[in-house]
C-alpha cells in the first residue's frame, strides 16, 4: 500500500471542478502553476478529463445545480482519488451557509481528504496543504 501511495503522490494530476465559486479561488489555483510557484516541479499538473485525474479539486459553495454533477464526477474518477476542498466556501460555506440554494459543505456530499481554508487561500497555503496531505497519506499507509 505504501508503494501505491508513493507512486500516486509523486505525480498528482489535478482535475479542477468549479462548483459555483466566485472565481477568486480559481484564479489563486492558476497562480500555483505560474513561474513563481511552479508546482510542476513536484509533478503536479492540471488535466482536462476526470478520467486522467488523481486529485479532484473543488472550489465554491456547492448549490442545487451542481450537487448532482459533483457526485457524478467523484463516481467517474478512477480510484484511488484524493479530494481537496479549496477555499472557505467548499470547506464550510462561510457566509452562504444559510442560503436558500446551497447543499451543505462539500464533505456532506463526497468524502474530503484535505481542507484549505481562506477566502481565497494563498498559493503558498495550497502547496503547504498538499505537502501535509502527502505526509498524512504516507503515514496512514504505514510508510
Amino acid at each position: 500500500m505504501s508503494y501505491a501511495i508513493n507512486a500516486l503522490t509523486k505525480s498528482l494530476n489535478v482535475f479542477h471542478a468549479a462548483c459555483s465559486p466566485c472565481n477568486n479561488c480559481d484564479i489563486e489555483i492558476l497562480d500555483a502553476i505560474t513561474p513563481r510557484h511552479d508546482v510542476e516541479r513536484f509533478g503536479i499538473q492540471l488535466v482536462g478529463s476526470i478520467r486522467h485525474a488523481d486529485v479532484l479539486l473543488v472550489t465554491g459553495a456547492v448549490n442545487k445545480k451542481v450537487v448532482h454533477r459533483i457526485k457524478k464526477l467523484y463516481e467517474q474518477a478512477p480510484k484511488p482519488v484524493l479530494v481537496i476542498a479549496v477555499g472557505g466556501c467548499a470547506c464550510s460555506e462561510i457566509m452562504f451557509r444559510d442560503s436558500y440554494n446551497t447543499c451543505g459543505p462539500l464533505d456532506k456530499i463526497i468524502p474530503v481528504d484535505l481542507y484549505i481554508p481562506g477566502c481565497p487561500p494563498k498559493p503558498e497555503a495550497m502547496i503547504a496543504g498538499v505537502v501535509k496531505l502527502i505526509q498524512a497519506a504516507t503515514k496512514k499507509a504505514g510508510g
Partner: peptide, 11 residues
Amino acid sequence: YEIRKLFIKET
C-alpha cells in the same frame, strides 16, 4: 513516475 502511477489506478 507518471507511467508508474497509472499502473496502480483503476481502469
